[in-house]
Design a protein around this nucleic acid. Sequence first.
DNA 1: AGATTTACCTAACAGTGTTAATCAAACAGT
DNA 2: ACTGTTTGATTAACACTGTTAGGTAAATCT
Lengths: 245, 245
Amino acid sequence: MKDDSATPDADPVPLRRRRRATATREILDAAQEQIALHGPFGLSLRSIARGLGMTVQALYHYFPSRDELVTALITEAYHELADAVRSAVDSAPPHGDLPRFVIAAEAFRRWGLDNPSRFQLLYGTPLLRYEAPADGRTTAGARRIGTVFYRELFGAFTHEQLSRTEVPPLSPALRARLEQMPPEMFGGLPPQAAVLFVSVWGHLHGLVVLEVFGHTSFIGPLQAEIFRGAMHNLFSDTQRRIPAD
Amino acid sequence: MKDDSATPDADPVPLRRRRRATATREILDAAQEQIALHGPFGLSLRSIARGLGMTVQALYHYFPSRDELVTALITEAYHELADAVRSAVDSAPPHGDLPRFVIAAEAFRRWGLDNPSRFQLLYGTPLLRYEAPADGRTTAGARRIGTVFYRELFGAFTHEQLSRTEVPPLSPALRARLEQMPPEMFGGLPPQAAVLFVSVWGHLHGLVVLEVFGHTSFIGPLQAEIFRGAMHNLFSDTQRRIPAD
DNA sequence: AGATTTACCTAACAGTGTTAATCAAACAGT
DNA sequence: ACTGTTTGATTAACACTGTTAGGTAAATCT
């Protein structure tokens, strides 16, 4: 009898690591709650610390600065949003009455309306004196979101078809710029489709932004219907621009 | 000889009024400069006062609170943006190669890119602890902007034509809600056109927001071309949805 | 058991919006 | 011209923010 635990004695499971992990988690949760309550600019280290029963300076043992905490919050939010959109699409019937693009769009909108402050953290005014890290840590989740949408829009077509997408003629410069784009941006879409995708993304994004930021509140709860109709039109307009053969 | 001034002695032109007006103007200008430099959340009463060579508390004699100052800034910015869009449309040839809708859209985008911080003040995350006044002071300019756009989109059609705009069928509730909308909102547009306008506005707004907030910076300066193409398509798609007869 | 890392503390600095109390200059009415 | 009042601007203070420095006790590692 050498050990009473199920795991061999290879990893002693440092007890302090676990404490550190749970404390880190608690800080992140408290920060998210703060943002949900008072908006992304209402984030306050001192207030977080108060809520956890410790002093501000203690937080600096878990995050070296406010920026690092914010980076973690943004990264998490992007991935949560991406998960919401992706799982909505995955759990949808493959041939329902609603195009899966519309389902994805409505999941995006839903998350924004359910988490307005975190949506603002992602897509609103950049936080004061916050610099996003040079590596794409924060925006990796953002790209995951885009992937879902252009898969639904263009997944059924060949690269050759997409290259004949009906868009205004592209200047050689723009064509070249988009062709040498890293594949993680537009997934290797031909320039015509990439341009169309930017337009579609702007449309979808803009309607949600208007609603989440309260610029169309005078319409009331019926915005859901307007949004669905707009997304439906947007989807069919987009599909019509791609030649069937 | 009863008076040496050109104006009769009816209005003594209170000297202090003038000082007050110029001081107010100086404060507003300093505030706008601050916002332009450090973003809408970088506004600091103390910093404004320092720049003008006085103490913070003196500012309270011109604006009863920070919120009142912010309200003035937002109101001014909306009207400046509306002026920019309107004058661009007015100074455009009536039958040029570019639809006047596209010209208006590009003026809107141009102002946003030239004044990113003030654009964020209008359309970004609401300022912390700021409450917009109950009367529509701040949003009056915003409505002026909308007016320009739906005049260009729908001005050439009759009310009867617009009521047959091709959009997904509207629920009775939405139809009723839009019909009893105050006319300063959608200028008395029939519900079908109003719905289409919201969609168009979202599209236009979304593309500009993405660009101003830096979410498409990886595309570079060629976004101008993408934007023009998208607005061109948007305009023709919209016109196609309105029956010619 | 001794050395080291980790966690947390108090104290301090410069910054924020706002209120209170105070004082001088400009205006209004008699 | 002399009041009384409004306006402009001041100093002082309160509670708040992120961050750094220095010190202490506990947990971990060697």
